[in-house]
């Protein structure tokens, strides 16, 4: 996927121009201050937000998986972790032990961190060539962040290109091959 001078938004332009080329097997981090448009750019990569200027080229029939910051609404529903993985086509192999043992439990009876990691895993492991993750370390403890960091490298090694939006500088430094820092109009 290649972006040249890409400016995206919903009703109006909301991001600084971005130049980015993502190769197969590469992990790129997008960072920057709150409100600079990181999530909007991710939505534009997924074809959800509008492109106002520049170019966005994607391989034809590129299979994309997107994990936004929205938490799947599972409260009160009899949905287990195994149900969730089956929905996106994700497999359980590689899950940390503290989650693998709880796959048959209801999602709304897991802790917030466990539920977050499982709902993230369902997208991360879904069949896809481009994986887009928005703030994946939210609600994760140190063990979760360590496992995610290691697993992102495995996923990229399997042939997926990954773009991660995060404000967690330590995570981005450890997980990403390359980091793109977005600057707000005031900083430019």
């Amino acid at each position: 996927m290649t972006a040249r001078g890409l400016v995206a938004g919903w009703e109006q332009p909301a991001t600084p121009p971005l130049d980015l080329a993502l190769r197969t097997g590469e992990i790129v981090g997008l960072t920057g201050p709150n409100g600079v448009g990181k999530s909007t750019l991710l939505a534009a990569f997924a074809g959800r937000a509008r492109v106002f200027a520049g170019q966005l080229e994607k391989r034809p029939n590129l299979q994309i998986a997107l994990r936004t910051q929205d938490v799947p609404p599972v409260a009160g529903l009899p949905l287990s972790g195994r149900d969730l993985l089956a929905l996106t086509g994700a497999g359980p192999v590689g899950l940390p032990a503290w989650l693998a043992d709880r796959l048959d439990e209801r999602l709304d009876r897991l802790s917030g961190g466990q539920r977050h990691y499982l709902t993230l895993w369902a997208v991360l492991q879904a069949p896809a060539e481009l994986v887009l993750l928005d703030e994946p370390t939210n609600n994760l403890d140190a063990a979760g962040v360590r496992h995610l960091t290691a697993h992102l490298h495995e996923r990229a090694g399997e042939g997926a290109g990954i773009i991660v939006v995060s404000h967690d500088a330590a995570f981005v430094a450890a997980a990403c091959d390359r980091v793109v820092v977005l600057e707000s109009a005031d900083e430019r």
Binding site: L66, V74, L79
Partner: peptide
């Protein structure tokens, strides 16, 4: 069934697929 569940849990994933 599967699409109803997927559209509820991951609406963005559902759309971009």
């Amino acid at each position: 069934s599967r699409h109803l569940l997927l559209a509820h849990t991951y609406p963005d994933f559902f759309r971009i697929r």
